[in-house]
Design a protein around this nucleic acid. Sequence first.
DNA 1: TATTGTTATACTCTATAACTATA
DNA 2: TATAGTTATAGAGTATAACAATA
Lengths: 157, 157
Amino acid sequence: MRREQPSTQEAADDRTDALRTEATSSIVGYRLRRAQLSVFQRFLTVFESLALRPVEYTVLVLIADNPGRKQTEIAEVLGVKRANFVPLVHGLEQRGLVERVPSDFDKRANALHLTQEGEAFLAHARQVHEDMEQELVARLGGEKARKTLIELLDRLT
Amino acid sequence: MRREQPSTQEAADDRTDALRTEATSSIVGYRLRRAQLSVFQRFLTVFESLALRPVEYTVLVLIADNPGRKQTEIAEVLGVKRANFVPLVHGLEQRGLVERVPSDFDKRANALHLTQEGEAFLAHARQVHEDMEQELVARLGGEKARKTLIELLDRLT
DNA sequence: TATTGTTATACTCTATAACTATA
DNA sequence: TATAGTTATAGAGTATAACAATA
C-alpha cells in the first residue's frame, strides 16, 4: 500500500500543499454555512444595482402576499426581532417602497402595504431573483435537484 | 370553486390567521439560512456543557488532521480572516487545548498543534458531534438523504 | 395586565488598515 | 517587497430591557 501522506504523528511545518479537510465534509452544519454564505454573496452581487439585501427582498415579498399585516407578524415569520425590524421597514419606507398605515382595528399597530412604486420595484426584483434561482438550479443539476434540496432543508428547520 | 382566502386586493388588518409564505419556499437562500440557523442552534445546545462553538470545533478538527500548520492556513480554509483567527486560537490555547509552537522553518509563523488534553477533549467532542449528526440523519430520513444533501450543498459552494 | 412599536444598548461576527518581525 | 501574526476599529446582525400608547 502506497504511503501518500506523511505519518499523522508528524508535524507539517515544512509542507505547503493543501490541507486535509475530509473531516469537515461530514459536518452538515459546516457545509450548510458555507453554502448559505456562498448563495448570499451571489445574492448581494446580483442585487447590487437594486441596493437590496436578502432580508429586504423577503420582507417585500411577504408584504406583497400579506397586505395589511402588522410589523410584528411579518417580523416574526422571518425570525427577526420586532425591535430590529423597525429600522429595516423604516428604510424601505424612506425609499418609497412600503407604507405604514395606522390600523383601523388596532390603533397601536401599523398595517404594512407596498406602494405603487414598491409593487413595480418588486416585480422587477422578482425577475432578477428568478434569474438567480435558475442559475442555482443549473448548478444543482436541474429542477428535481432543487426540489430535493428544499425538502431536505425543511426537514432540518 | 370555493373561496378560501379573501381577495388578494383586500387588506388583512382584521385577520389573525397564518401568513402566506408560499413565495418564500421558492427562495433557496432563505431556506438555506433557516436550516443553517436551526442546525447551529442545535449545535450550541448539544455542545453547551463543552463550551464549544461550531467554529471552534472545526478548528480543533482541522488542527488534529493537519498538525503543525500555520494559523493563516487553518484560518483561510475556514473562511476566517487571520485577524479574527487570533482571539479564536488564543482562547483555545488558554484552555490548554492548542499549542502555538514557533516554526523552525519560518520564524514569523506559529505551528499549531493539539495538546494531549486537546486530543482527549476532541475525542470526546467528536463523539458528541457524531451523536448529533445521527440525530440530523434521522430527521433527513437516512444516510442516503444526508449524502444527497451534502452533495447538493457542495454544488452551491 | 398584555401587546405594538419604538429607543437604547450590548454582544457577536465580520472586514479593513496598519504595525512588527521576519522572509 | 511580501508575508505571518497582531492590534485596533468599524460595520453588520442579533439579543434584551424599558418606555408610551393602546388593548
